[in-house]
């Protein structure tokens, strides 16, 4: 389920936390980075690895919005629509993205390339409106800039 590099990292982590349960979030991040999402089998694997219950891992995965319990598109576009972004036109960005990708917020394109999500404040209020794709932030957006982001990713 996890690469050698990750397993080694887990050994290192053990020195940093007094319990294995505390490694739940870091290990789930490793799984998601390697597989894109966290399947029930992966949750079982993490539970065994950390000697915690499957229920515990399931509870954590479903509590935190950034863990995907299901497969999602290759590119996950997250658009902030909270107040600071809203005041600077995130509505137009959402409209443009939905139009360009042919999907609505919360949907994934049939070919599995795109997933579009509305998210809460990402801490980009000074450079609003914004969207994130993976770890990358795209800021001070306008429809033209959205086009260039999409073209680059495609």
């Amino acid at each position: 389920m996890l690469s050698e590099a990750s397993l080694q990292k887990i050994e290192e982590l053990k020195t940093k936390y007094p319990t294995t349960q505390a490694m739940t979030l870091p290990v789930l991040w490793m799984v998601q980075e390697e597989h894109g999402f966290i399947s029930p089998e992966a949750m079982k694997y993490v539970a065994d690895l950390l000697k915690v219950s499957y229920g515990h891992v399931f509870g954590v995965v479903t509590f935190y919005t950034m863990y995907n319990a299901r497969k999602i598109g290759k590119h996950h576009i997250e658009v902030c629509t909270n107040v600071s972004c809203m005041l600077r036109g995130s509505g137009k960005i959402v409209e443009h993205l939905e139009h360009r990708l042919g999907i609505k917020m919360g949907e994934t394109s049939r070919d599995g390339t795109w997933t579009l999500s509305e998210v809460e404040c990402m801490g980009s209020c000074g450079t609003a409106p914004m969207c994130a794709v993976g770890e990358e932030y795209y800021e001070n957006l306008n429809p033209e800039k959205v086009d260039s982001v999409l073209n680059k990713l495609q």
Binding site: V83, S84, E120, C121, G123, S124, C125
Partner: peptide, 11 residues
């Protein structure tokens, strides 16, 4: 954790 909408200073 900096998640309060309108806050982007710790970043």
């Amino acid at each position: 954790d900096e998640s309060e909408p309108g806050t982007f200073k710790d970043r």
